[in-house]
Computed example of a mutant assay.
Amino acid sequence: MDATPALSRTTLATMLTQNLESSLQELASLPDEKRRCPLKPSRANPDIIWTPCDHLAHLIGIERYFNRQIEQALAENPSAAPARQANAPTRPREEAMAAVHALNDQWILKHRDKSFDELVAMARETRTETLAWLERTSDAQLELTLPVPWGLATLAEIFALHVRHTEMHLGFIRSGLTAVA
């Protein structure tokens, strides 16, 4: 997936914990009207304009999706020896990502009625689950590869992805709020 150097379980856990708390602090510092301010059109449907709360809901949904993927992979092969898989997605990347973007919109619309506090509780619950999966995953399993919409990724890369993904969406929120200010 990427050239990120191998990260220890402790480093991954620290990154995941600090990332969530700093992100939630940043979003909590915004007035509620800013958290609900339309910022960025959806990639799938430009009529759907994402808000900061939508970005948070999206991050939760993606993290839950990957937790289910990890759970399934480890249930199928609990002693998982690292192995490259030949079953990366067969559809073109653009087609796969278009499907992902459409599912993202479904997810955020389903959770748009949630309060910020409810989203924060969901984010913390999801991150607790992610950290539990990280703890249950052996060092060898961290190198297990899974198919992802854009190719293949190791479990370690998927855990680290949550941090980078959150930072990317916080960047969208920051630039969107600057543009509407």
Rank of each mutant, 00 (worst) to 15 (best):
P92A: 15
P78R: 11
A75M: 12
P41Y: 04
M15I: 13
K110W: 07
T11H: 10
A86F: 11
A28G: 14
G151P: 08
S115K: 08
T4P: 00
D139F: 04
S79V: 09
Q141A: 12
L74W: 10
W150Y: 15
I158Y: 03
S42E: 00
A121Y: 11
T14W: 12
R93Y: 09
L144M: 15
L134D: 07
K114F: 10
R9N: 04
Q18I: 07
T14H: 14
R174D: 09
A81C: 07
A88T: 10
A132W: 13
A3S: 13
F116E: 01
R43F: 12
E33C: 02
I62V: 14
W50C: 01
R91L: 15
L146I: 13
T137I: 06
D105V: 01
E118F: 09
A179S: 13
R136M: 09
Q25V: 10
D105R: 00
P38D: 02
E135C: 11
A132G: 09
H165M: 08
L109P: 02
A153N: 12
H55C: 15
T51L: 04
E118V: 10
S29M: 09
L39D: 03
W150Q: 04
P5I: 08
H101P: 04
N19C: 08
Q25I: 10
M15H: 13
Q72I: 08
R124C: 05
Q106D: 05
L131T: 03
L39Y: 05
N67K: 00
Q85G: 11
I108M: 06
R43L: 14
D2F: 11
H162E: 11
T178V: 14
E95K: 12
R64N: 03
T51S: 12
P78C: 09
N19H: 04
F116L: 03
T166S: 05
R91W: 09
A132H: 13
L177E: 01
I60L: 00
A13F: 11
G171F: 06
P149D: 11
L155W: 01
L170N: 05
T178S: 12
D32Q: 14
W133G: 01
L30N: 06
I62F: 05
D139H: 10
H58C: 05
T145Y: 11
R9H: 14
L177F: 09
R91Y: 11
L24F: 08
R127F: 05
L134S: 08
Q69R: 14
L20G: 01
E94L: 08
L161I: 05
A179K: 13
V100L: 12
T137W: 00
S175Y: 14
M97C: 00
A160M: 08
H58A: 02
G176E: 04
Q25M: 11
W107A: 04
T137N: 02
P46H: 08
T154N: 07
L146T: 00
T51F: 03
A153M: 15
P38V: 04
T128L: 13
P149W: 10
D32I: 15
R43A: 12
I49G: 00
S23P: 07
T14S: 12
I48R: 00
L119V: 03
L142E: 05
